[in-house]
Design a protein around this nucleic acid. Structure first.
Lengths: 191, 191
DNA sequence: CCTACCGATCGGTAGG
DNA sequence: CCTACCGATCGGTAGG
């Protein structure tokens, strides 16, 4: 069979694709219908509103990043090992879920106040995983202790959250090499 | 006098503000008119189209970053000094022109193909300034030479291009401290 | 999931 | 910069 009815998760997945590519406000419900081979009005049997779709995509993103952080913190190993696990996990989440990640990173600000506040909270919890590992490393001598874990976390996450903007799978840099370069840069710097 | 007629640059400035805050597609010409105290239709005596406004804001951004890079490369000094100048210049451009920078970074992808291609070219030229300094530094022994200047440039620019998302003037970190932390992190890393 | 709509809003124009 | 519009498109609904 070539055609089947779409499920709600098909609709959410397609929404992630279009939101990532053209932005939330640049995507109409008719665009989304076309992507799925049906009319815009037919989408309302799957979702309550357009916002509803954005909420679903962004919550998927939050869940993925959170799950990755939890797994990485569960690792026993040095602070460097756990930092590397966080980096590697983040890279995997982004590259295995490009549309969701892009929507999570760029379109969450289009959410209404209530949902946006929730996302900010979830991002802060995720960032806290990085802060904790950096603090641990500063405490046990793995990392220098004159560096502010909060600021350093932001710098690291800035690098990680930009990967979707430039990395091309199949290009000169393999995923493993990317993780390696990131870890090297973060831990040793240019000097 | 409290009220004067708006100039074209007033309109472009207001457009930058709204595009930065609500996105290009999230801003209507009527929104923009309201911001300036006139009707949406009245804007067309200043601009040809909504796209025209986005082009102007984004080109302003490109010019600012380019000017900063040119000034920094003109510095004579070690590779570290010039890298620090590039970082400091970038921070100044972003923090002194938040709306333009945000629009340049987040909304340029909404441009039509022709203008988007131009912006990509300009960004690449700007990135080339970073690559050159990193290459110089790898050549004269200032920086390690097992690091790829292209990848490192991307990492550094990723940190710089995220500053608008989290930095709050008047907060715990002064602008000078921000530049200091960035330079330290980039050159020495965590280790 | 479609037919057949709804009121609101969109970017933009003619003519002053 | 306003008045007075235009056709197109928007998110969404009723009823099947």
């Amino acid at each position: 069979m070539v055609t089947t009815r779409n499920s709600r998760s098909d609709v959410v997945a397609a929404a992630g694709r279009l939101f990532a590519e053209k932005g939330y406000h640049g995507t109409s419900m008719r665009d989304l219908g076309r992507e799925l081979g049906l009319l815009g009005s037919s989408l309302y049997s799957h979702v309550d509103s357009k916002q509803d779709l954005l909420v679903s995509v962004v919550e998927d993103g939050a869940r993925l990043f959170q799950a990755s952080a939890t797994a990485s913190l569960g690792t026993d190993g040095s602070a460097s090992d756990r930092l590397r696990a966080l980096i590697s996990g983040h890279v995997d989440v982004v590259l295995d879920n490009l549309d969701v990640s892009r929507t999570f990173l760029n379109e969450a600000r289009m959410l209404d106040d209530r949902h946006r506040a929730k996302v900010i909270e979830e991002r802060d919890r995720y960032e806290a995983a990085f802060r904790r590992v950096l603090s641990d490393g500063a405490g046990d001598g793995s990392f220098r202790d004159d560096i502010d874990p909060k600021t350093a976390s932001i710098f690291i996450l800035s690098m990680l959250n930009a990967i979707d903007r430039w990395y091309r799978p199949g290009g000169a840099l393999s995923r493993e090499q990317l993780v390696e370069e990131l870890s090297l840069f973060v831990i040793d710097g240019l000097g």
